[in-house]
Design a protein around this nucleic acid. Sequence first.
DNA 1: AATAGTCGCAACCGCCGCAGC
DNA 2: TGCTGCGGCGGTTGCGACTAT
Length: 300
Amino acid sequence: MAEPQRSRSRSRASSPGAPVELDDDHGQPGGAAQDQEEQLELRRGPWTVDEDLTLVNYIADHGEGRWNSLARAAGLKRTGKSCRLRWLNYLRPDVKRGNFTADEQLLILDLHTRWGNRWSKIAQHLPGRTDNEIKNYWRTRVQKHAKQLNCDANSKRFKDAMRYLWMPHLVDADDHRRRLLQAAHHHHAADVAAAHGLSGAGMVTSASSDSFATTAESYDDVGGLCYANLLHAGEMAAVGGGGGCWPHEANHQGLWPAAADQAGSGGQFQDPELSGWVQGFSEGMITENFWALEDIWKIQ
DNA sequence: AATAGTCGCAACCGCCGCAGC
DNA sequence: TGCTGCGGCGGTTGCGACTAT
């Protein structure tokens, strides 16, 4: 799928943010002299705070769309494309920042297995995440690990490793985290209830530590929603055709073999070259803090 | 403390498809 | 039907931040 690299000049190498002459952008036709004058003024490179404010305020007043005319009307010396990208990837109020949760990682792996590099399509299933962010995640994290395994990220071998090792453990991590959360909630509820001489049943409390609070927020806000998206059978059927082979779904139906089983005899994952890695993977995963992607791979 | 190497992210690029004329 | 402009997409890369030596 990798497209051959196209030769091009990279203007960003010279003085970021400085006005430069556009050499190509069919959104900027080079016909009229006035247009050429405007093109000479166009900026590239990192956005300034003032530019961000201008764009945000303009969109707040007038809404999105018609990016080229928006850029001109707002007085931004940027291409419409640049404005659109900045808004969608960074300024949009619902854009979510920070590390991907285990849920999100799992979802990305799932959807990439199914759709390949259809980043925008994948992003539609991760609320608040942009295709650019997902693409970056894949290229920097996932492909790095594929490289560590000496296989291509798009190869069957790596996909098998993902399907039978990585994804099950991410699910385990979520289950583990869910249990911890429940325990934390229950524990806290019980404490409060005891203090008030009440039964803890049915009480809704916040987690009792910062880490739990963070985890709870990310899980409830993101993971639950993602799972809800994923586990709608109708959607899955529409998405893939034959949803029965859907690893995530199968796992939740109790049909998905555990990684340890795969590492041993009789599993579907029997790549001899990865057997050592698999063994280490299986033996090293029983820890308290194993939902970070990096942790999963560190044990190799 | 200085330097080299690596990583992650923001932003750019060209290509493609669609809509309007 | 062909042309033009635009929005969207996936691929790529420059650069700052971080880490290792």
